[in-house]
Simulated scan of single mutants.
Amino acid sequence: MTTTYAALLRGINVGGNRKVPMAELRVLVEGLGHTGVRTHLQSGQAVFTADHGDEESLAAGLERAIAERFGFAVDVIVRSHAYLRAIAEACPFPAAELEAKQLHVTYFSAPVEAARFAEIDQAAFRPEEFRLGDRALYLYAPNGLGRSRLAEALARPRVNKGLIATTRNWNTVVKLVEMTGEAAG
């Protein structure tokens, strides 16, 4: 049985560093035996179908291939269409009423407990706020991610210790659901 996935690459093509051209990424993913490969934006999203493996093994295979091809390590999170759709549907904020720059999802490599974020006093960051989901964190930042003090606090190494975390704005969240849905359907 084939499953459609999105690979989320962390920290590529930012400020001219760690360049991974999307055309080369598509060739690399196809070279791993995956089909229906498409990319979205330059910030590192690839959609593909696979008939073997699970999210963790697919991510590890992509990480190895990227390191071999480009000469640097890139963290990768792979998630299925069903998961991506469930995350979008479970959004605790009124996504349809917000600008895409105001709403973000941080995808984590593993489940996270609320205790990990206990040191963050959410009231001190209002009107910004976050809520936890299934291996994800929803962030409402009314002035955008670049100006978000809460996003900065959430990105602290001690908060994310032992996890891969990568954030996407709501437009990208929705687009990945669409792209993986088209490939799955």
Score class of each variant (00 low, 15 high):
153 A>L: 03
146 G>M: 06
70 F>Q: 06
58 L>P: 15
30 E>L: 03
116 R>Q: 08
58 L>E: 03
173 V>M: 15
42 Q>C: 07
158 R>E: 03
175 K>G: 12
28 L>Y: 15
88 A>P: 15
18 R>I: 01
11 G>L: 06
12 I>K: 07
6 A>S: 15
80 S>R: 04
20 V>Y: 13
130 F>L: 02
45 Q>Y: 13
173 V>F: 09
59 A>H: 13
99 E>N: 12
152 E>F: 00
148 S>D: 02
117 F>P: 05
20 V>A: 03
88 A>Y: 11
58 L>G: 05
106 T>W: 01
136 A>Q: 08
170 W>C: 10
97 E>Q: 08
46 A>D: 10
25 L>T: 01
158 R>K: 06
167 T>M: 03
64 R>M: 05
152 E>G: 01
154 L>S: 07
92 P>H: 14
150 L>D: 01
12 I>G: 09
129 E>I: 14
131 R>V: 00
14 V>P: 00
49 T>W: 01
41 L>V: 04
72 F>S: 01
130 F>T: 10
72 F>Q: 02
100 A>E: 13
138 Y>E: 07
137 L>H: 08
14 V>E: 03
120 I>Y: 00
111 P>A: 00
160 N>C: 00
89 E>S: 07
180 T>D: 05
55 E>P: 15
178 E>F: 11
5 Y>T: 02
151 A>K: 10
126 R>Y: 01
159 V>T: 03
179 M>F: 14
100 A>P: 07
19 K>N: 06
180 T>G: 11
139 L>N: 09
107 Y>R: 03
115 A>D: 12
152 E>K: 00
43 S>A: 15
88 A>Q: 14
40 H>D: 11
36 G>E: 13
3 T>D: 05
112 V>G: 04
127 P>Q: 08
166 T>V: 02
57 S>D: 13
157 P>N: 11
152 E>N: 01
49 T>S: 13
36 G>A: 12
95 A>N: 11
63 E>C: 07
169 N>D: 11
132 L>D: 06
25 L>C: 04
176 L>R: 07
133 G>Y: 02
129 E>A: 15
169 N>I: 09
65 A>P: 14
108 F>Q: 05
177 V>P: 15
37 V>C: 05
73 A>V: 14
21 P>D: 02
115 A>I: 02
